[in-house]
Design a protein around this nucleic acid. Sequence first.
DNA 1: CACAAGTGTGAAACCGTTTTCAAGTCGAAA
DNA 2: TTTCGACTTGAAAACGGTTTCACACTTGTG
Lengths: 330, 330
Amino acid sequence: MAGVSPATVSRVFASGSSVSPAVDGKVRAAANELGYRPSVMARSLARARTDLVALVVGRLNNPFDAQLVEELSENLDARGKRLLVVPADHGENDPAALVALDYQVDGIIVAAGHLSKASAERFLQLGVPVILYGREMHAAGVDCVVADNVSGARQVGALFRRSGVRNAIFLRHKRRTFSDDERGTGFREGMGPDATIRELQSSSAGSRDAAMAALSELPSVTGVFCANDLLAFGVVEAAVQLGLKVPDRLRVAGFDDIDMAASPFYDLTSVRQPPGEIASWVVERLLERLESPGLAVTTQRLPARLVPRRTAPALPGFGGLCVSDPGNGE
Amino acid sequence: MAGVSPATVSRVFASGSSVSPAVDGKVRAAANELGYRPSVMARSLARARTDLVALVVGRLNNPFDAQLVEELSENLDARGKRLLVVPADHGENDPAALVALDYQVDGIIVAAGHLSKASAERFLQLGVPVILYGREMHAAGVDCVVADNVSGARQVGALFRRSGVRNAIFLRHKRRTFSDDERGTGFREGMGPDATIRELQSSSAGSRDAAMAALSELPSVTGVFCANDLLAFGVVEAAVQLGLKVPDRLRVAGFDDIDMAASPFYDLTSVRQPPGEIASWVVERLLERLESPGLAVTTQRLPARLVPRRTAPALPGFGGLCVSDPGNGE
DNA sequence: CACAAGTGTGAAACCGTTTTCAAGTCGAAA
DNA sequence: TTTCGACTTGAAAACGGTTTCACACTTGTG
């Protein structure tokens, strides 16, 4: 060292320790000169803390998910932690999550479909906090954040019902999903017991074709609620192509309220779940749990708000409940 | 240890070393029993290799960027490396990139705007390979991948010119960008020297308003080329709102060819740059450079292909050059 | 049967920090 | 002047692996 000290350097870079100004200056000067920066790896090894948080996540083709990744990354960064992305593309369960463990990550954030109970227990046993979003899971101390799917979808159902829709389709993803289940349930609740609701499955990419087929085959259907906006876009397209006027002849609604939903061409009624809030809740909770591991497990429900637009407009009488866009339609 | 060996365990888990089948079995059995997995941190410290690759990236609101992150993450994962996300949201230059160094990452991938020459040199000096995408940079051994913006934009310009557009707008981002510059250049080339081209700046979110203002003020403009699809969407919307028929009265084109460009409502002529190819080239190159650091620096240009759609249709006579959608228009 | 070559294993040093502990310095209080 | 803390600093033991080296112990060959 240019200065004269082995472990004192540590104190200089670790905040909080007391070092005399003189020494501090010398060390920093030398470090600057040498271009020295403490190795996070070595520090992690010694402290048994990596400041790394793993995110186990699947595909990002839905802008909503992408947004979430961005927000998570930024939130963590602001708290001095770094995001380690572990792709869970294998579609199925845990193996990906286990990789995270090898990195001694301080915590793990898992997207809806990618956590098995087995993994969850393994994490708990190792004392690594897990936050799950987009799905509830009553298992070993994992905290969950979920948008209030049931309530959001119920609002859509109620709007459809009040608009006179009696015969509807619930379009969901091919792969069975916790949130799709909830959205279906909420929708049925909102539509009431005397409504007929068909469930249809499709990939986001193929939703137009699926909707085309279903709508031409079932002329009595007057409303389609989709598990997300991407699916709904396809339905709107199909309706246009079939000459079914939206919203007069057919109401359409989606879920997530991604940016494109506000496009004047779709102008899609949707249910807003704010990625920013989810992200900040997730990291907030993670950090809380890191500093006091004993916390009770919680499941946080984030409110989901109906955003009525043209494809399923709010009814005059009920406008008070619905918050529409500020819409400075010049 | 349940078995009988301290450093032999290392050999068991490090591939390639020779261990007798008997010992190997015992060790693995014990490891399995104890739930032991080697600590990546310790390994990294000893080997001076972390299997971590940092990605310095800004916002992900453009689906194109999100897709890129996904592809990068998966490609790296398949090669045994992990993606560390370092948000560069500060908009400006290097500080973010330096964080990556502390993690002793094996390599760094940087998105267009987020690398300064200073950082680049620092990385080179430390022997950490840097791959830059979305921008060229003739500095210290950084490899670059860039879509062929000039050629792609030139194709748009040529299409516009052949369609009779003489007076056009090039709509670019507020923040000055390498690729926007190139796209502007290519567009001008394609339009020819006698065309009038106005440059306009806007954020993706506000492009509709910007276009509204410009188009009503400049009635002679008959074509708008945008630096990306998101901007172009706003222009199409503005055109509709102003009653300018697209494409008869106004041609519009974007860049990236994101999924939504194919939406029948926009049906946007665009220039395709494949995120998958970019991603795989990036990690391919990174790994190459990791195992043979002496490689000559390269700048890879990936072909950008015009995808004509309704907002600026291909002309009958020139169809051969343009690849349109498979379009099974039922 | 001896000797070279090849294999599987253990000892020990090392990677770059943190952290405990003890020792040393200095100023203030007695 | 002596004594007692408060501060600053260094020595040394971790942290959990990898890796070099040397030491047996098999094998194969003359």
